[in-house]
Amino acid sequence: MREQIQKVLMTLEMDKDMKVLYACDSGSRAWGLSSDASDYDVRFIYVHKREWYLSIDQGKDVLEVPRSAFPFGESILDISGWELTKALRLFRKSNPSLLEWLHSSIVYTEPFSTMDRMRELEQKTFSPISCIYHYLKMAKGNFWDIRQGNDIKVKKYLNVIRPLLIIKWIEINHTFPPIELRFLVERLLPFGKLKEDIEMLLNRKIAGEDLIVDLKMDRIKEYVEKEFEHLENYIKGVKNEISNPTESLNRLFREALDEVWGK
C-alpha cells in the first residue's frame, strides 16, 4: 500500500503543479491501534510554485482527494493535505492535529528538509495550553457519549484514554508526545489492574473486536473522572509564555520555496 500511496501523491503533484513536502499516516495506524479493517489516513503538506503566492486572490489551501478517485482500495484510503503557509500558521498556534502529523511514526514521503526545520522550531514555540484544551475537550466529549450510553465500543474508550495520556505527557515533559498509545500507556501508567484493563482494550481493538459485552469498565471510568478533576485544577495554572515565531516561520517558508523550486 505504501507504493500505491506514493503513486497517488506523485499524480497529485503533476495534476496540481505543486510538490509534496511530507506525507504521513495520522489515524489508528499511527496510534498503533489499527486492525485489518482500518483505513489509511494519509495527511500531507505541500507547496506551490512562487507564482501561486504572488496572486492578488487567496488560493485554496486544502486538497481533499475523494475516495472515488482511486483506482484501487477506495474504501480504505483517506487522503488530504494542507498548503505550507496554512500549515505554518497552524504550527504557530501549536495546532494539535498538525503536531500529530509531525510526530507520526509512519511517514510515506519526506523529500525535503522543511519538516525537520519545523521540528527544530517546535522545541522553542510549543504552547501546551492549546493542546491541553483540545485534548481535554476530546476526552470529555467521548466520555459523555459513553455515560449517555450512545457508544460503548472499545474505540470510544480508547478515544478517552489517548487524549488524557497525551495531556499527562505534556504536563510531565512540557513537550508534545509520541503519538503511539501503547508507548504512552507503558511510560505513564504504573503496573496494576488499570494498566491491564487498558492493555486489554488495546489488544481487542487491534484484533478487530470493538464491542464491549463482557468487560467491566469501572476502574477505567474511575481513573477518567479523577483525571478530569485533576486537570480542571491543573489547567488554571498553565502559562502560555512563548516567543513569537512568525519571523522564523516566514524565513522557513521562503527557504522551502528555494529548496523545492530553486532560487
Rank of each mutant, 00 (worst) to 15 (best):
R2W: 03
I5Y: 06
Q6K: 15
L9N: 02
M10V: 09
T11C: 11
D15F: 06
M18D: 00
K19H: 10
L21S: 01
A23Q: 03
D25R: 08
D25T: 07
S26C: 14
S26A: 15
W31K: 00
G32C: 07
L33N: 05
S34K: 13
S34M: 10
D36W: 12
D36R: 14
D39S: 08
Y40T: 01
I45Y: 05
W52H: 11
I56P: 08
K60W: 02
D61V: 07
V62K: 11
V62C: 04
V65L: 10
P66E: 08
R67H: 11
R67E: 09
R67A: 11
S68W: 09
A69M: 12
G73L: 15
S80N: 09
G81C: 05
W82E: 00
E83F: 10
L84I: 12
R89I: 06
L90G: 05
F91D: 01
R92E: 11
K93N: 07
S97D: 08
S97N: 14
L98G: 03
L99Y: 08
L99N: 05
W101P: 02
I106E: 04
T114Y: 03
T114L: 01
E120L: 10
S127L: 14
P128G: 02
S130T: 10
Y133F: 12
Y133V: 04
K140L: 10
K140V: 09
F143K: 00
W144Y: 14
I146G: 00
I146V: 15
I146L: 10
N150G: 05
I152Y: 08
K153E: 12
K155Q: 12
L158A: 12
L158M: 13
V160Q: 04
V160R: 01
V160T: 07
R162A: 07
P163R: 04
K168Q: 14
E171Q: 15
H174I: 09
T175K: 14
T175S: 13
P177N: 09
P178S: 10
E180T: 10
E180Q: 15
L181D: 05
R187W: 01
R187T: 01
L188D: 00
F191I: 05
K193P: 05
I198N: 01
I198G: 02
I198V: 14
E199R: 05
N203P: 00
K205S: 04
K205T: 03
I206T: 11
A207G: 10
A207F: 07
E209S: 12
L211N: 09
I212P: 01
V213Q: 12
D214C: 05
K216S: 13
D218P: 02
D218I: 12
I220Y: 04
Y223L: 03
V224Q: 01
E227G: 00
I235G: 00
V238Y: 06
N240F: 08
T246S: 13
L249Q: 02
N250M: 11
E255W: 03
D258R: 15
E259T: 12
W261A: 03
W261H: 06
G262L: 09
K263F: 03
